[in-house]
């Protein structure tokens, strides 16, 4: 969302505000699907859910977010090596999370496939979240490749900040989706 530079305006503040609005807007989208889950299935929940695996991938995703944070801190100090290493770690952990979701899907497709009602909300909500994960992973991959080619430094790293913020957002959404699907 980089803008053509406006003289006299802080383009980083402009980009940052746009990203916050975009994130708020995405929250609205998720809230509709989360609302649908409670509206349709109340507090019902199938016993076949693999809650252990759910906790495991949640921990993996949280670690990925921490790595992304450390990567951003590193580039803000101008430490490119550390930035690249932690970005890569965030990508690997994020991919691991998606593999976990895949395993969960295989079990769910066996025990409550749509047209089952819980399958409907489970697959649509995790699917919506996974599609945002894929977007975020591509973005992380993009800043990693760009960083390897020498882009971003201590002064100019809005690209990193933006992608990492989006990654935290996807993470935060999971922290709402996970209890919604597994714990309530």
């Amino acid at each position: 969302m980089a803008a053509i530079t406006h003289t006299g305006h802080d383009s980083r503040a402009i980009n940052s505000m746009g990203l916050w609005l975009f994130i708020a807007s995405e929250f609205a989208l998720f809230s509709a699907f989360i609302f649908a889950r409670y509206y349709l299935t109340g507090r019902d929940q199938p016993e076949e859910l693999n809650i252990g695996l759910g906790y495991a991938i949640t921990v993996v995703l949280l670690s990925s977010s921490v790595c992304a944070y450390l990567a951003e801190q590193a580039i803000a100090r101008g430490d490119r090596r550390r930035f690249l290493r932690f970005t890569l770690a965030a990508i690997v952990l994020g991919t691991l999370f998606l593999v976990g979701v895949g395993l969960e899907w295989r079990e769910a497709a066996h025990s409550f496939p749509p047209p089952d009602l819980y399958g409907t909300v489970f697959f649509s909500l995790t699917g919506l979240h996974a599609s945002h994960m894929v977007t975020g992973l591509l973005a992380l991959l993009f800043i990693w490749v760009q960083g390897r080619r020498g882009r971003f430094d201590a002064e100019a790293h809005w690209g990193v900040t933006g992608v990492v913020r989006y990654w935290h957002f996807v993470d935060l959404v999971w922290l709402i989706v996970f209890p919604t699907l597994y714990l309530v």
Partner: peptide, 14 residues
């Protein structure tokens, strides 16, 4: 398109 039942009363949707 994907066989879900959000709005299908017969399948438990609304």
């Amino acid at each position: 398109l994907f066989g879900m039942v959000f709005f299908d009363a017969a399948g438990g949707g609304d």
